[in-house]
């Protein structure tokens, strides 16, 4: 009893804590700031990424900029792509945006994975372990940025593929491949909290140049990748309607109901069973009583009839005796009178 109470208290408080929790990421975790105003769309980052990750060569070479004419997305052979966006009125140069995994502080993919194939590392990257992956692709459903890609062409060994923020290189003290190669410093690598300061400083210094928003600071609870832009982010194909709720919180409520149902349903259902059982029992009992009382009534009626008949018979008998006595007496009287006279 005490243990149960303790457990429920502990559970309750953790739920409560979750509701008020604001996870700002692991302390001193790393991130990358992408400044779209500095990106020239050279695709060097794509080449660097391809090289350090040992990915297969692209269909068109990385110095072929005609691929920018259409919108691309990441796939199993490409962990990052740069897209060009038509300049909105008043801003002549075309704008570019680099796409890759944003490495959420509280990743939707990791929360959705039923075999814990994703890990948010202390360094800030979200890494994937193919050795346990079942291939259910729920991470792809969950990811608000549509980042995880899947090897649909592999019959028996398909993996999820996505940017690792160069986790293996970062733990060795190296820069991520894309950051290292960027010729124009559009990418800055460092502690996330420092990057936020840098981004704020740029916005403060050049208020006409930048939109007053750091994309990724709060989106979906915050991401390790941060973005600066001179145009509204949706003009760069980035969704502005994602909200600030971290993905795990979206399902926490539904999951918290599980132990309640598991605990209370058996009680409720056993109760309903008991009610129906008791109803049956009472119905049976009432039936028995009804039968018994009917029988009793019939019996007593019969008895009453019988005793009435008996009484009548007795009465008749008495009357007959009386009559006989009277008759005898009268006869005797007559005899006496004739004798007297």
């Amino acid at each position: 009893m005490g243990a149960a109470a303790g457990l429920s208290t502990a559970y309750g408080s953790s739920v409560h804590a979750a509701a008020n929790k604001y996870f700002k990421g692991y302390p001193d975790s790393l991130g990358i700031l992408f400044d779209s105003m500095l990106c020239i769309g050279c695709r060097k980052c794509e080449a660097g990424c391809n090289k350090v990750n040992g990915l297969p060569p692209p269909d068109q070479p990385f110095d072929d900029l005609t691929v920018l004419n259409k919108k691309r997305r990441t796939d199993t052979r490409t962990f990052t792509v740069v897209n060009r966006y038509d300049p909105p009125q008043g801003i002549p140069p075309p704008l570019f945006r680099k796409i890759q995994c944003n490495h959420c502080l509280e990743p939707a993919c990791a929360s959705a994975c039923f075999v814990k194939a994703f890990t948010k590392t202390k360094q800030g990257s979200v890494v994937y372990d193919a050795s346990v992956c079942v291939g259910c692709r729920y991470c792809m459903i969950a990811c608000p940025f549509e980042i995880p890609t899947y090897e649909y062409d592999k019959a028996l060994t398909p993996r999820i593929r996505k940017c690792t923020m160069c986790h293996p290189r970062v733990v060795e003290g190296k820069l991520p491949g894309c950051v290292e190669i960027c010729p124009n410093e559009a990418l800055s690598f460092g502690k996330r909290k420092d990057l936020i300061k840098i981004a704020r400083e740029r916005i403060r210094k050049y208020p006409d140049r930048y939109v007053d928003h750091i994309y990724g600071e709060h989106e979906m609870g915050g991401t390790s990748w941060l973005y600066l832009s001179g145009v509204p982010f949706n003009a760069l194909g980035m969704r502005e309607d994602l909200g600030v709720t971290p993905a795990p919180e979206l399902t926490a409520g539904a999951l918290s109901v599980v132990p309640m149902v598991a605990g209370l349903w058996p009680v409720l259902l056993t109760g309903l069973y008991a009610v129906s059982k008791r109803k049956e029992k009472i119905a049976k009992l009432e039936q028995q009583q009804a039968v018994a009382s009917t029988l009793e009534k019939a019996n007593s009626e019969a008895e009453a009839k019988l005793s009435k008949a008996l009484a009548n018979a007795q009465k008749e008998k008495d009357a007959a005796i009386k009559r006989e006595i009277k008759k005898a007496l009268e006869e005797a009287k007559q005899t006496q009178e004739t004798e007297d006279s």
């Binding site: 959705a112 346990v132 079942v134 259910c136 692709r137 899947y150 028996l156 060994t157 795990p248 399902t251």
Partner: peptide
């Protein structure tokens, strides 16, 4: 048919339990 490696379907119970996932439930 749908999952990538069907023989791993018991993994969520036997290898690593992703208890934060609705799919685990």
């Amino acid at each position: 048919y749908d999952v990538g490696r069907p023989w791993r379907l018991p993994y969520p119970f036997l290898v690593q339990q992703g208890t934060t996932s609705v799919l685990f439930e």
